[in-house]
Design a protein around this nucleic acid. Structure first.
Length: 442
RNA sequence: GGGCCCGUAGCGUAGCGGUCUAACGCGCCUCCCUGUCACGGAGGAGACCGGGGGUUCGAAUCCCCUCGGGCCCGCCA
């Protein structure tokens, strides 16, 4: 009995009779000479069918039909990949008679107005070889992030996504019925990862977070994948920035090296990384942007803004790429008014020890240092108008009460990381089955 | 939450007041084709123009409502 061979092995099997299995991907029928393409997990195989009876087996069957095919491997430079299957005998394993609603062998349009069609037909669209590259790259990037962290002695954790109450503040939360009680979905593992610093010093989590923000943009979803990192015993904010910047740069270098062909065929931008990630304060960026020709022409002045505008994020990234040769850039020293209660404040400079890591024009990660002193936490929470005795804060504060070292970390958007790397226009293109304000299927 | 834009066969588009009983490309069906790789050729099926109301002698084309979707801003990963 022949064991199943894969498309990528074909070249090494010239002269042998083999069996392959996969999906019928393409038919090119020239009469007495017919070319079929079979797709398996490793690639495509071209098959030459000259026997009319074999072709008859496919009558009425569509692309996507699952086939088992035996034949002889023949080297031929006219064949894609240099080898193909001859004298094939087809066995239909799973017939498909319905015409697919979209074409699978050609990449579907990613223009914004066509994304609805793309996602409605995601089940089939994902069989497209070009589309699949995005998700193979994504899988690798997630793996590289994980490996880098593990090498640096971080422990991977899993924290609950059902929460008893909204506690973190900021973004809107989803509420749901939990056996008669109200529960919320976690917007981030913020409290849990800080708690875990008290046990392991260095922890990370790659998991979903849920935001009920009614945002309809190319960079927001209601269900997103975040990498959360937290590290204790840091010397200060700079060490955290350096680590997170190094993490992103390392993963990008590895991705661009391992997936050079795929990224090129997806028309991803070339990677530019400097020795270290350049840094600008928010105030500096406001100043640079506001005095730029484009801003002056548009009559825009951001010097009084607390946060960066999307235009400023694009502006400083463009500057960093052109002038400093870096796709990554830090915006540092966010104003105190923008801070959350758990951020560390630099009282002298009147700013927050919080940086945003920007990547090709988009916020990729927030990289703050946390307040780790129990008394100061209580103080900052009260200042923020929070009830420090509330059940939702009880366990969080326990970690502080019983000792947390100076720590910091990041909330890092994995979807955005993939989007910007591949050069996708919309974040949902980087997600298999995206969820936004009006999509819950497939 | 605010602003702007789009909705024509399975998919992508053209048509933007009468010549539209709606056109083209891809896909699909039938036939021809021995080296294709966006194969080629001949023929064919397939939409009543998102839905509702209105204006008009006449609407896919104009107006209103509604449903679906997109983009930007706010917010953030």
């Amino acid at each position: 009995m022949n064991e199943r061979k894969l498309a990528r092995e074909l070249k090494e099997l010239v002269g042998q009779k083999i069996t392959v299995k996969g999906w019928l991907h393409k038919k090119r029928l020239l009469g007495g000479l017919n070319f079929l393409t079979l797709r398996d997990r490793s690639g495509l195989i071209q098959m030459l069918v000259e026997d009319k009876d074999e072709m008859e087996k496919l009558r009425g069957l569509q692309i996507g039909t699952v086939l088992s095919v035996s034949g002889v491997v023949v080297a031929d430079e006219r064949a894609p990949g240099g080898a193909e299957l001859h004298n094939v005998v087809l066995t239909v394993e799973t017939p498909v008679t319905d015409e697919p609603p979209i074409e699978i062998d050609k990449p579907i349009s990613h223009k914004s107005e066509h994304l609805d069609t793309l996602f409605d037909n995601r089940v089939l669209n994902i069989r497209n070889v070009q589309e699949g590259k995005i998700f193979r790259i994504r899988a690798a990037m997630t793996q590289y992030l994980r490996e880098y962290l593990i090498e640096n002695e971080f422990v991977e954790i899993d924290t609950p996504k059902f929460l008893g109450a909204a506690t973190e503040g900021g973004a809107e939360v989803f509420t749901l019925d939990y056996f008669g009680k109200e529960a919320t979905l976690a917007q981030s593992p913020q409290f849990y990862k800080q708690i875990m610093v008290g046990a392991f010093e260095r922890v990370f989590e790659i998991n979903h977070a849920y935001r009920a923000e009614p945002s309809a943009t190319t960079r927001h979803m209601t269900e997103l994948t975040m990498l959360d990192v937290e590290m204790g015993f840091v010397s200060g904010h700079e060490e955290v920035r350096e680590f997170v910047g190094g993490l992103a740069a390392s993963v990008l270098r590895r991705t661009y090296s391992d997936f050079a062909d795929e990224l090129k065929s997806l028309q991803a931008p070339e990677l530019r990384l400097a020795e270290r990630v350049p840094e600008f304060t928010v105030a500096e960026i406001h100043e640079m942007y506001s005095s730029s020709a484009a801003a002056k022409k548009a009559g825009v002045d951001t010097r009084d803004e607390k946060d960066l505008t999307p235009d400023e994020e694009r502006f400083i990234c463009e500057y960093a790429r052109k002038e400093l040769g870096s796709d990554l850039v830090y915006a540092t020293d966010f104003p105190i008014e923008a801070a959350k209660f758990y951020h560390k404040v630099d009282a002298e400079k009147g700013v927050t020890k919080w940086a945003d890591l920007l990547y090709r024009g988009l916020e990729l990660a927030t990289v703050p240092l946390r307040e780790n002193n129990y008394e100061k936490m209580i103080e900052q929470m009260k200042k923020a108008g929070l009830d420090v005795d509330a059940e939702g804060y009880k366990y969080y504060l326990q970690a502080f009460k019983y000792g947390l070292p100076m720590h910091g970390g990041c909330g890092f958007g994995v979807d955005r990381f993939v989007k910007q790397t591949v050069g996708l226009a919309n974040i949902k293109e980087a997600v298999l089955f995206p969820r936004d304000i009006n999509r819950l299927t497939p």
